[in-house]
Amino acid sequence: MALSKIWVHVEVNEGTVAPITLEILAKARTLADTVEAFVGGSADGIAETLGAHGATKVWATGPIDGLQGAHVGAALAAAVQAEAPDAVFFGTTYDGRDIAARLSVKIDKPVISNNTEVELDGDALAVSTPIFGGTQIVKTKFAAGSPAIALFRPKSFVAEETGGGAAEVAELAAGDTGNSGTAKVLDRHVEETSGPKLDEAAIVVAGGRGLGESDKFDMIETLAKLLKGAPGASRAIVDAGWVPYAYQVGQTGKVVKPTVYIAAGISGATQHMVGMKGSKNIIAINKDEEAPIFGVADLGIVGDVHKVLPKLIEALQAR
């Protein structure tokens, strides 16, 4: 038995719908007769994409003066009473978490975070959540009545077009933000990046503490460029300040599922592996033959990154 209606939060990055939203729309369609989307902001330029991925309607707040959490949370709380979706789905993103948290308090319903799967168990939704760094999976059933509020990790599902026409645009009316809506965004800083995004690249070359010192991360950048991929990092070197947080792969960083993941000088802590073990092919270079990363590597090289990487770079440059 399918649910009748699921709402999906739309994450917009630089004017386009983020991949995570399209992934969740695809999953929601398999569970409910009707899938609708909602966005904190304007629906301009996104209704076509959403429609093509199966959303028949997009509820839009229009421009928001402040942070998404308080404003969209309040608007949503009012709207879900009237429209009665069976579930409200979000991606585990900065704004997704904030909105889901505010909504859960406003309507006094639990929210379950970090899910990677969802199914119908009888007529209730059940979500699966990796715990202990992804070594175990807990399945939890919602038992507090609708709507169920769930947050999903990126790359949990595969986006799929349905060929639908543009989603109908409806107004998501402002709700009562009380004293909560007073935070103001003064300025936005966009960090310059080149090459493909870490979580969208077909090839990811990631470095860890085994590189020895921050200058040596240049080898990772060079290799990523040669392979038209994105550079990534373990938390150890992000915390050490070698590279920005945006490079981090793992539990508290990005989830990546590229065609090839190259881990150089990374031990393979569970918190790192939860972010990359879904990669199609994994190559690991580590001087310790006991390193846990070899447990998931399709090609494991027991060796010194300072010897292997320069030669690899040279060989690729020569092609």
Partner: peptide
Amino acid sequence: GQEIVDVAAAPEREAGEKIVDEGDA
């Protein structure tokens, strides 16, 4: 308002080939 119905080990990923670098890795 939520009920744990199951806890299971996550599927393991199989390791592939592992070689020791002899200068030609």
